[in-house]
Design a protein around this nucleic acid. Structure first.
Lengths: 104, 104
DNA sequence: CATTTATATAACTAATGGGTAATATAATAA
DNA sequence: TTATTATATTACCCATTAGTTATATAAATG
């Protein structure tokens, strides 16, 4: 999946909230509307973006549509963070600086 | 620092590129302009946003302004990922699901 | 089948974002 | 001091986004 789309999807606070609600359990659109301060179409629109980023999946349950978290794409974010990790743990030593310049 | 601003700052591909260039070494604005396909004001504008998100710092070197990566705020991103980590490693067991519902 | 319930899509609007050229500011060099 | 170099800021423009209301679609129910 596309990294740009992933970051883009995560840049919106309401969408991040939705992911957290879905982390607890699957939710219908209606439930997500109640949990948010948005209109139903607003929620559906955000869900579409989360779907296209692969962060959620849907299944039908009668008239309802149940949304589930799919955290797989977040692994990409974790990978992206990889090279930065050593930086926030403190000062780099010379070897680390050297290794950084080898694989830019 | 603000999580919203952090995600927002990271949502733009050019800005993420700049962070990677700064990961290798400090850079002047001019260098970053050459490395990008943007105009100088364009680069300065992105740098402002990165600064306000705390992701870079500046120091003056004669007329130049040298920008440095500050990865500290990315630790927040790492923290945000925390609760999602177990999900992409595979199926949750019952205990994990239980723990998830305890701390929503 | 008509109605109700649940959700998606369409059409629109206001605000924001990213881009540029032009200009202001700041430090160095002549 | 004047000119040059380097960067930030301003003033725009256009495209995108997030939100809305209204409407379409789809399944369940009477």
């Amino acid at each position: 999946m596309n990294t740009d789309k992933l970051f883009e999807a995560l840049s919106e606070p309401n969408r991040r909230s939705m992911l957290e609600y879905l982390r607890v359990r699957d939710r219908s659109v209606g439930e997500l509307v109640e949990l948010s301060s948005l209109s139903q179409p607003g929620v559906s629109k955000h869900l579409r973006i989360l779907r296209e980023a692969g962060l959620v999946t849907v299944r039908s349950d009668a008239q309802k549509r149940m949304y589930s978290l799919n955290a797989k794409p977040l692994e990409q974010l974790d990978d992206w963070l990889g090279p930065y990790r050593r930086y926030w743990s403190g000062k780099l030593d010379d070897l680390e600086r050297f290794l950084d310049e080898e694989k830019p």
